[in-house]
């Protein structure tokens, strides 16, 4: 559905590299996650695919249309939700939706089935101005506006940034039901924990794709064994663990430390070492890595 070949892009006359030889393929009907921190190049890639920017190098196709030559055809068949909340703050929910429906040459009634489940949640407030809505409601309205013309591909650039957990969960549930309608969804997020909600993901950093796979596949490719270190006094525990010569890397990770070992080192030995250093309650257990652990490992390679 989306094919990206050797796309490259720079800003400031080549001084800032935004994208570097990016290759990707997104299949029809999948939720594909583009995961990386701010400044990784996610928005640039979205803008190239939505024909808002011309790539400097490489080629890309959306729905078999070339992003440079067939930009008009692409603009007819995709839905796009930019990173910022981009609806008219001084228009009401209904006015916004009506406006975008007309802009895309359709009416609310025509594709109401597609947005119905989402729209009913905000319909009670339809005469409220968009600027006065909560983060979660704005997001729902933006999604309705992006879906109003029944696009084949949906581009969602960081849709969940700045939205609370409950709204985020609802949002991902909505995406899952859209997938059932056969809509291909390319979604970007800086939050690693959302990766597992996608069918496939690409990890992106500094304009380069680090890895493309299913979330399970990425976790599976973690090299070596990951250990969790639990104990009181995180800061001193962190210093002590990093001081152990067998440790390759160690980071605080929520309520525990995550550590990997150099070849030959073992968990029990570290536990004994930490206890000897006064961390009597220290416990070292092997654990299964998460997407974020994989990302860190890929970044350090």
């Amino acid at each position: 559905m989306i094919r990206i070949e050797h796309i490259g892009m720079t800003y400031d006359k080549g001084r800032v590299v935004a994208l570097q030889d990016v290759n990707l393929e997104v299949n029809k009907g999948e939720i594909f996650g583009l995961i990386g921190p701010d400044g990784a190049g996610k928005t640039t890639l979205f803008r190239i695919l939505t024909t808002l920017l011309l790539p400097e190098k490489g080629q890309a196709w959306v729905n078999n249309y070339d992003v440079v030559k067939d930009y008009k055809a692409i603009r007819n068949s995709v839905g796009y939700m930019p990173g910022k909340f981009s609806l008219y703050q001084d228009l009401t929910i209904e006015e916004n939706l009506n406006f975008f429906a007309t802009v895309f040459g359709t009416t609310i009634a025509e594709n109401y089935d597609l947005i119905k489940d989402i729209y009913v949640q905000i319909e009670p407030f339809k005469n409220r101005r968009a600027g006065k809505l909560s983060g979660g409601m704005k997001q729902k309205l933006a999604l309705c506006c992006a879906l109003i013309h029944k696009p084949d591909v949906l581009f969602l650039d960081e849709p969940t940034t700045g939205v609370d957990v409950v709204s985020r969960k609802e949002f991902w549930d909505m995406l899952k039901s859209l997938r059932k309608e056969g809509i291909t969804i390319l979604v970007s997020t800086p939050y690693m924990d959302e990766a597992t909600l996608c069918d496939r993901i690409a990890l992106i950093q500094k304009g380069s794709i680090l890895s493309v796979d299913t979330p399970e596949g990425i976790v599976h490719s973690f090299s070596g064994q990951l250990y969790a270190v639990h104990g009181q006094g995180t800061y001193h525990l962190l210093q002590a663990t990093r001081g152990y010569e067998g440790v390759a890397s160690c980071f605080a990770f929520g309520d525990a430390l995550h550590a990997t070992f150099k070849p030959g080192a073992q968990g029990p030995a570290l536990q004994a070492y930490l206890q000897s250093k006064g961390h009597s309650d220290a416990r070292v257990d092997p654990i299964k890595p998460g997407i974020e652990d994989c990302f860190i490992q890929l970044l350090n390679q």
């Binding site: 803008r47 939505t50 024909t51 808002l52 008009k72 603009r75 007819n76 995709v78 796009y80 930019p82 990173g83 910022k84 909340f85 981009s86 609806l87 008219y88 703050q89 975008f100 802009v103 895309f104 040459g105 506006c145 992006a146 013309h149």
Partner: peptide
């Protein structure tokens, strides 16, 4: 600034 221009440009408008 608002970002709505992006949506308008991406539309067939």
């Amino acid at each position: 600034e608002l970002g709505t221009m992006e949506i308008l440009l991406v539309s067939p408008f």
